[in-house]
């Protein structure tokens, strides 16, 4: 059986998406809805916004992000996410490995001739 585009995307997202979430938080604290909106405009990184929340819970459990409550003008207080030092380290490690990984995949897709 040939896996469809969706299946391939799902596999590719694993391991990459959580670092994309960390990257959103590199320079600013954001609340869930903000992160969801930034990650889903084209549906490549995340097909449904809701899947962000288990991911955030997992990142927080792993100590990579932290949450703080902040009052909002428009409604109930919001839970803002920020990077912890471990989160920063994890993001830096991903940035280091991502480029060689991406280049290696691109090279392989062209038949292995650099």
């Amino acid at each position: 059986m040939v896996p469809g585009d969706d299946v391939i995307l799902t596999h590719l997202r694993r391991g990459a998406l959580e670092h994309c979430v960390l990257a959103m938080l590199e320079h600013e604290e954001l609340y869930g809805l903000d992160i969801a909106r930034r990650l889903t405009p084209d549906g490549v990184l995340m097909s449904s916004e809701g899947t962000l929340y288990p991911l955030l819970a997992r990142l927080r459990k792993a100590g990579l992000v932290d949450t703080t409550w902040q009052e909002s003008a428009e409604g109930p207080p919001r839970r803002y996410y920020s990077l912890t030092s471990d989160g920063r380290a994890s993001l830096a490690a991903f940035k280091r490995t991502w480029k060689p990984f991406r280049d290696a995949v691109d090279t392989a897709l062209l038949g292995g001739q650099p």
Binding site: Y31, G32, L33, A36, E49, G50, L52, Y53, P54, L56, A57, R60, E74, G75, P76, R78, R79
Partner: peptide, 13 residues
């Protein structure tokens, strides 16, 4: 935490 996140998302949008 997941439920609260989704709930907040709905409240916000």
């Amino acid at each position: 935490e997941v439920l609260a996140g989704v709930r907040e998302h709905l409240d916000g949008s």
